[in-house]
Write a protein that binds this DNA or RNA. Structure first.
Lengths: 229, 229
DNA sequence: TAAAAACTTCGGTTATAGTCGAAGTATAAA
DNA sequence: TTTATACTTCGACTATAACCGAAGTTTTTA
């Protein structure tokens, strides 16, 4: 007994459907208030409050107080990674309606994974970066090449300031839908921000993401055919 | 609702301490009978039987019938991966006794992870294979070089027959204690088997592994100082 | 054919925890 | 200062499921 960390404790925190719905919502980039999370989980605010306390206690999420508001976020990328990895072995979603089906398809094609881009588009973009020689795959992360330094500079991403952040500069993240790695970490986050800034992609509800017309052309120039995803 | 797989279902299966103890035991290489799993989890055979049914139903484990015996195994490496990833964010083990403390240390240094070697030794061995140019790291797996083909041949591992197996030839597996990747898949499994055959390592209880005297010298020749782990 | 072993099923007890209404606290707006 | 908003705490109810004893099924051994 007691010689390895107890994963059942964390599993229990994720095992309740209401808490799972909240964690799922928090896989989106934004910090969300308790009211919003209660709505996502279809429970009253009191119930949500209890759940959120447990998740904070278990260090799966953090709170930021802003006056009378409290914004909740996933504690770190390891939590996001754990949820994605569990999702790999979870039974497929139960599709009940046409609405569900089209949403499932959208989410599989392109979505945010915590703070970076995932789904087929995320994997394709990471692949394009590799094929174009901007990044090289390493043990746990990606290495930015000299060519990549120039490219990301032209993309208005300041790599030096990203490197100074107190988090992983680059990181590999495993996709539940693709079962392949995509770019995460500070750079993965910065790329997502730029894609949104430049309006190559738009956020849809529930972490889904849509490629805009301009985006379609831009991705094309990287060798990605968005239609084919 | 219903647009992504429901990870709370899998989490719930892992959330019960008895089931977690059983899954932990099954992270060892061997298939185990219900009686043995009941003992590991400190419950009666009836209770264990109920838990095992649920785990089979949820596709986390598989059963092999051999006469009146039923041997249980993890369903696949994705399940092992999910457990390891959850363990990364689990609170550290509660050390109650000196016995616990020494076991925890041993398990951190060297252990089996499902069907291959993990812990500091597993990560070091994988690193040595890379440094010696036997394998190269790729997206989700490792590539065996020409030099590596010869090396593993000399190690009495038949790569061609491994490649024919209906599983991943090589695979990257993330360590909870090291937070780095080590070699898994059919080759990772074959390496573990040879290490045991050649008596470089010995199995201890609870998935821990001990390096023998001969093993110490052998690892040295690969550039690994076992004392320093 | 009988007995033992490995495991499953059933039934009843108990403990846990998810749920919400009601009431309370803290901060911001009016 | 009053009112509204965001959230927490408390208490009671309820459903779920973990647990084990007892009895049943299947296969092997004697």
């Amino acid at each position: 007994m007691g010689s390895r960390p107890d994963f059942s404790y964390v599993a229990k925190l994720m095992a309740d459907p209401s808490r799972a719905a909240m964690l799922d919502a928090l896989m989106g980039l934004d910090g969300l208030p308790a009211t919003e999370l209660a709505r996502k989980a279809n429970v009253t605010i009191q119930t949500a409050s209890g759940h959120l306390s447990k998740l904070v206690e278990g260090e799966l999420i953090h709170v930021e107080k802003h006056g009378r508001h409290r914004y909740f976020r996933l504690a770190n990328t390891d939590v996001a990674q754990a949820i994605e990895t569990l999702t790999v072995i979870a039974p497929p979603a139960h599709i009940k309606s046409l609405n569900d089906s089209s949403r499932a398809k959208k989410i599989k094609i392109a979505r945010t994974c915590y703070d970076h881009l995932a789904g087929e588009l995320g994997v394709a973009l990471t692949g394009a970066f590799i094929d174009n020689g901007y990044i090289i795959e390493a043990q746990n992360d990606f290495i930015v090449t000299d060519k990549g330094e120039k490219y990301f500079h032209g993309f208005e991403i300041n790599l030096d300031s990203l490197r100074k952040e107190r988090r992983h500069f680059t990181r590999k993240c495993l996709d539940w839908s693709e079962r392949r790695y995509h770019l995460a970490g500070a750079l993965g986050n910065a790329v997502l921000m730029r894609l949104l800034d430049r309006h190559w992609i738009e956020k849809l509800p529930d972490r889904a993401v849509k490629v805009t017309k301009e985006g379609g052309k831009a991705f094309e120039s990287l060798g990605i055919n968005v239609e084919q995803l």
